[in-house]
C-alpha cells in the first residue's frame, strides 16, 4: 500500500499520512475526473503500460491502485 499511498498523495497534493488503507477515492476532498485521470497517468507511468478503459473506470479505492502497481 505504501507505493499506492505515495502516488495518490502526490496526485492530490495531500499528506500521505492522512490516507487510510480503506480509502475510497470519491470520498477524498477535491476528487474529480481531472484528478482521476492524473492518478491513471501516474499509474501508467509507474507500470510502463497503458491501462484498459474498464480498469480506469473501475479505479475506485486505494487498494485498486495498489493492485495495479503490483501488476507491474
Amino acid at each position: 500500500m505504501t507505493g499506492a499511498r505515495r502516488l495518490l498523495a502526490q496526485a492530490l497534493e495531500i499528506d500521505e499520512d492522512g490516507i487510510a488503507d480503506d480509502t475510497v477515492l470519491e470520498s477524498l476532498k477535491g476528487w474529480d475526473s481531472i484528478v482521476h485521470l492524473r492518478v491513471v497517468l501516474a499509474i501508467e507511468s509507474a507500470i510502463g503500460a497503458e491501462l484498459p478503459t474498464e480498469e480506469i473506470l473501475d479505479l475506485k479505492a486505494l487498494e485498486d491502485i495498489a493492485r495495479l502497481l503490483d501488476s507491474k
Binding site: D32, S33, L37, T53, I56, L57
Partner: peptide
C-alpha cells in the same frame, strides 16, 4: 457531466 464515465 464531464466525468470519466461520461467521457467513455
Amino acid at each position: 457531466g464531464t466525468g470519466l464515465r461520461e467521457a467513455a
